[in-house]
Design a protein around this nucleic acid. Structure first.
Lengths: 153, 153
DNA sequence: GACTCTGAGTTGGATTCTCCAAGTTATGCG
DNA sequence: CGCATAACTTGGAGAATCCAACTCAGAGTC
């Protein structure tokens, strides 16, 4: 999606991450997976995504290591496919939470938030923030060039 | 992009946020804006984005309140357009940082990171994390249905 | 005034992606 | 066997993207 013309991956982490989850529907599929959905039919009915696109996105996410495809069998039913988040998939919770938090702050819906962020241990409200190495919350952050300095991307 | 067939916006903050920044190139344009780029030619040369797409994305981001379009004039030149992040645009730093951090953790590039996250006050490494209301770092987070409970999206 | 240069776009056409409806496959049940 | 159902495929229309070429407006040069 954002790979360069010569085929080499970008040194930019944003571009490389968006190569995996930047396609339409991908982050919504992951969001629903974070809510516990695992089946083709759940994603289809929960998101209204076209089934051919859903097939393609699930395959992309499995290949990228975000989802793990496993068979399951309910009593009296034949074997079917289910999709489970890998550790990398669970890691996307931070991205999803950042998107939710930005929407709440700068583009709130008229009916209130559809999702809330909570501490799973206590149920108390939680949020995403910048912290330093000692876990102290920082007021802001700077994104500076790293070792693979970027001139183009 | 993710608006429902009847035209009403989704109650899902992820879908509403992606409606604004989910189109191809948008988050890369914002990333470069966070690095200080402001001009059409800087985005074009820095990202390699087609100019017609860049025109469309800048217009979308201005309309959405992420960028502010301002004229500027350098000595001996005529007036030109520049684009500056609004507070909402700066708020996207959290999303960009989450994408960078996920890429570093689960999909690192062979040449090392292209960007690093630092405390702007000290230059020390920083990261994105979940915190509770008292700014204590949490090990994980749950995304639970909010007031506008979601059945579809 | 004619000529050129440059930043910021437009325009036209080919390619690719997305959407939707319809069809397919594999299995279990009566 | 015929039927039901989950999980896909397929075909075709429409939209988005890409690329190259072109336009436009003001500034500098002659």
């Amino acid at each position: 999606m954002y790979t360069r013309a010569d085929g080499t991956p970008s040194t930019c982490q944003v571009a490389r991450t968006l190569d995996i989850v930047g396609e339409r529907w991908s982050l919504l599929i992951v969001r629903n997976a974070l809510r516990g959905q695992t089946r083709f039919s759940e994603f289809r009915d929960g998101l209204g995504v076209p089934t051919d696109i859903l097939t393609a996105r699930l395959a992309t996410l499995v290949t990228a290591g975000v989802l793990d495809k496993r068979p399951y069998r309910e009593p009296g039913c034949r074997e079917r496919a289910s999709y489970h988040l890998t550790p990398a998939g669970h890691g996307l919770a931070l991205v999803e939470a950042a998107l939710i938090q930005w929407g709440d702050t700068f583009n709130p819906g008229s009916e209130g938030p559809g999702s809330r962020l909570v501490d799973p241990a206590t149920g108390a409200p939680a949020r995403v923030a910048f912290v330093d190495a000692d876990d102290r919350v920082l007021p802001g952050i700077a994104i500076v060039p790293g070792p693979a300095a970027i001139t183009v991307w």
